[in-house]
Computed example of a mutant assay.
Amino acid sequence: MELMQQDIALGLKGKDFLALADYAPEEIRYLLDLAVELKRKQKAGEVYQPLKGKTLGMIFEKSSTRTRVSFEVGMYQLGGHALFLSKNDLQLGRGETIWDTAQVMSRYLDGIMIRTFEHRRVIELARGATIPVINGLTDSAHPCQVLADYQTVLEQKGRLEGLKIAYIGDGNNMAHSLMMGGAKLGMHVAVASPEGYMPDEGISKNTKEVASQTGGSLLVTTDPIEAIRDADVVYTDVWASMGFEEEQKIREKAFKNYQVNGDLVKHAKKDYLFMHCLPAHRGEEVSEEVIDGPNSVIFDEAENRLHAQKAIMAATMC
């Protein structure tokens, strides 16, 4: 087992973290176990600085609270330095190619985190870079958030394999990463979205193929009760993500029957966990009684962004 862990650790050095689909189940589990250990060290006041003297460049084409703070603090705790780069700070906004930017930044930095819109931009950046690239969020994937999510479930439930997670809402980047991550970990994932807002069909197909190999499963439905029935974990996200604000009123009508509230969660297991990637719109996608209730672990989940991302950086940038 120890030799296997060493092999996994060696295999992750210098590797990009773009999507959970790119990682084997044992690699994801390694990162989860590392995140738990790094959290233990931090809580115990143990100094652990494997990235001393290294620098992470953080490209933000989409703003964020949790992503910026957690990466910046995490890099500091690992002994390194994080450099914030907004779209106004870079020549990317003035026509320089992603390839050229990646090549130049690879000469200065030890890793790049990018939070952007189209997923192809992350892929192009990684192709041009000679240092690890971490996906801080794209319109189709949010792997850092989901690693923190499953770390939270692991801590709360003691296991992941065989558990059921129900996602209620927009079939967006969160749904995609939760689906694939859950399938890789042998979980049963159910997604309920209204017609026109379901997860990408190609990602759903790939997820089912992965689940068939790990003992997990994927259900995609328009019925939130069918999805949430006997769920160990209940998850939702805002109805109009960043970039879709102009669709707010249209989406409110489409999602009116998809609010996670007291009536809906009665169909989940009594000891279900409620999760949300935040920021949340209380009274919209989730009622206050649920998000502020005893089953909610949203702030444990938010904290784990720090520890999960430290695991990613420590594993890939050492």
Rank of each mutant, 00 (worst) to 15 (best):
H307C: 00
E26H: 15
G14D: 09
Q49N: 09
A9M: 10
V69S: 12
H188S: 04
Y23T: 12
E46D: 14
A129M: 07
V104Q: 02
W99M: 06
K62S: 08
L306I: 11
A21Y: 14
K249M: 13
V260C: 12
A227K: 07
M179D: 03
I312N: 05
D110W: 00
D232Q: 03
G196H: 07
M187I: 08
V36N: 07
C318S: 13
L20T: 00
V238F: 11
A126G: 01
I203C: 06
P199D: 02
G128C: 06
P143R: 05
L10I: 13
L306A: 00
Y235H: 12
Q77A: 09
D149E: 06
M275L: 15
G79R: 03
M242D: 04
A211V: 05
L38W: 09
Q145P: 05
Q49M: 07
K253Y: 05
F244A: 10
G196L: 00
Y30E: 03
N261G: 14
E27P: 02
M242S: 01
A21I: 14
N295I: 01
I112L: 12
N304S: 02
T130L: 05
Q309I: 11
S287Y: 06
G80H: 00
K157A: 11
S64P: 11
L51G: 10
G74I: 06
T130A: 07
F299G: 00
K43F: 08
E288T: 11
N304V: 07
R121N: 13
A102Y: 03
Q309C: 11
G243I: 13
G158E: 01
L10G: 14
D89H: 12
Q91C: 02
K310G: 02
K310W: 03
M105Q: 10
G93A: 13
V146A: 07
G243H: 11
W239C: 13
E155P: 10
N206A: 15
A315T: 03
I98S: 01
A190F: 03
I134Q: 12
V265M: 12
S64C: 11
H81V: 06
K62Y: 14
S140Q: 13
